[in-house]
Amino acid sequence: MNTWYMATFVGKDRSGIVARVTNALFEGGCNLGEASMTRLGGNFTIMMMVSFEGTEEELRENIGPVCKEFDLRSHVDKINGELHRHTEPDVLISVHGADRAGIVAAATGVLAEAGLNILNLETDVGGKEERPVYVMHLEGIAERGVDALEKALEILEEEQGVQTHINPIDTLIG
């Protein structure tokens, strides 16, 4: 029976990495589950669910050459491959403001206290080098309702000098 692994790759971004890495995995007998690739500050990052019948060591051997070719660091962990069990978020929140240390900790802290279970988080630093702007998007489940989160965001706006937006996600099933 196949085992699920989480394989992560980090390195300087170059074109062609995804194609070569996924080809190496396919040729090595792996099947991919869900994956998320993003560039963070010009760095290439990808996390992939990999199903493979061999050992962890054999999986590392499969990806060794491509990691060397693209100078990638990789990491492999055994995981539970829980596919077909997506959890749907019911609220979307954005926070933006002048960049400074502590925004994520403050925002996620007050939101967690108000009952937010975070399912997705993405943050970007935009603006100019001398005047960076921080933008954060969160999706999650408002376990104690949207009103509680709205109140938490009002406090966050006052204390941190950031702007926030919150919208329920009305997922249509039809």
Binding site: H84, R85, H86, E88, I169, D170, T171, L172, I173, G174
Partner: peptide, 13 residues
Amino acid sequence: VGREGCLSVPDYT
């Protein structure tokens, strides 16, 4: 823009 799912496409929105 809004979030949609479908009885004919289970477990994806």
